[in-house]
């Protein structure tokens, strides 16, 4: 179930390979063998804790729910997939999740871009301190932090009073869509900041100076130089934020009060309430495939302009 697991930070590296000398090429074979050996623990880990469980999900999606709600691994069919295709309810829930994912991603991008820009243009010492600041929340558990928001946003919560004083809300924020978006942006913002920072930090600022010398306006320099150069970071960050927010379960359940069901809660319901594992699995597989396809397309289209 692809729910609220914090994705590992993968920051896109430039792929410009250095030409190999003859001597290095001779070592190539031994080196690749060593590489395989070093990668082995990682491969084993991923196989045991990712590929095998995922395989079970795929297999379960073709199994049958018995009358009692047990999953029968004896009779195989694609009923679950037929239901996903034909169900208006699932479509509604999916659109809602898509909307929430896009909103979260856009807000994160809008907040993270200036922040990353600011960080990347500081002195190295300040830069590192600020980066640590961004990562500190990761040192505590996501669930615990979400519970903390519950306290902050309830009727007498500090957050509620603060937002009320600023005229940004009247009454309890907890159990509203506002609270859900707030919680998601809070949770996923670092996933946007870090890749954006990595991209902005690498930009050769003399290019910006050059563009200004050639009479580009400030906006023009941003649009023609900074933005294109930061694209890899924008793409990586958007994927890292969109993927978990599309399947989010914990944040909407705790902060949104379980109203307006999303894909994550629908899938959980299939497992823990309806005892309909095949449907829950099939929906997980569909979400996974759609995400994977979307990511590939996104990278490909982004890749051309890198």
């Amino acid at each position: 179930m692809p729910i609220d697991t914090e994705p590992a930070l993968a920051i896109a590296e430039p792929t410009g390979a250095r030409p190999l000398s003859d001597l290095e090429a001779g070592d190539e074979k031994a080196r690749s063998r060593l590489g395989l050996l070093l990668a082995l623990p990682g491969i084993v880990y991923l196989t045991v804790f990712f590929v095998i469980p995922l395989g079970f999900v795929v297999v379960t999606s073709f199994a049958t729910r018995t009358r009692t709600g047990r999953t029968a691994y004896e009779s195989w069919n694609t009923d679950a997939y037929s239901k996903i295709i034909s169900s208006d309810l699932i479509r509604t829930v999916a659109w809602r999740s898509l909307g929430l994912g896009i909103i979260t991603t856009l807000i994160c991008l809008a907040l993270a871009f200036p922040l990353s820009y600011f960080i990347s243009t500081r002195k190295p010492v300040v830069r590192n301190l600020l980066l640590i600041g961004v990562m500190i929340p990761f040192w505590s558990n996501f669930l615990v932090r979400t519970y903390a928001w519950r306290v902050l946003l309830d009727s007498n919560g500090l957050g509620t009073r603060l937002l009320g004083a600023l005229g940004l809300g009247d009454g309890r924020i907890l159990f509203t869509q506002k609270a859900v978006v707030l919680g998601m942006v809070y949770g996923f913002l670092p996933f946007m900041v870090l890749p954006l920072y990595a991209a902005l930090e690498r930009i050769d600022w003399s290019l910006v100076e050059a563009s200004r010398d050639l009479y580009a306006s400030g906006w023009g320099a941003f649009r023609r130089v900074v933005w294109p150069l930061s694209r890899p970071g924008v793409i990586a960050g958007s994927i890292l934020v969109f993927v978990p927010s599309f399947g989010a379960y914990i944040t909407p359940a705790l902060l949104g009060g379980g109203k307006d069901p999303l894909l994550g809660s629908y899938i959980v319901g299939q497992f823990l309430q309806a005892r309909n594992w095949p449907l829950g699995s099939a929906l997980s597989v569909v979400v996974l495939v759609v995400m994977l396809a979307g990511t590939i397309v996104y990278f490909r289209t982004g890749g051309r302009t890198l």
């Binding site: 009358r67 009692t68 309810l89 309806a274 309909n276």
Partner: peptide
């Protein structure tokens, strides 16, 4: 039995 699925779906529909 199989009717449980209707409880689940109708409940989800009612929630939003």
């Amino acid at each position: 039995g199989d009717f449980e699925i209707n409880y689940q779906d109708y409940f989800t529909q009612a929630k939003g």
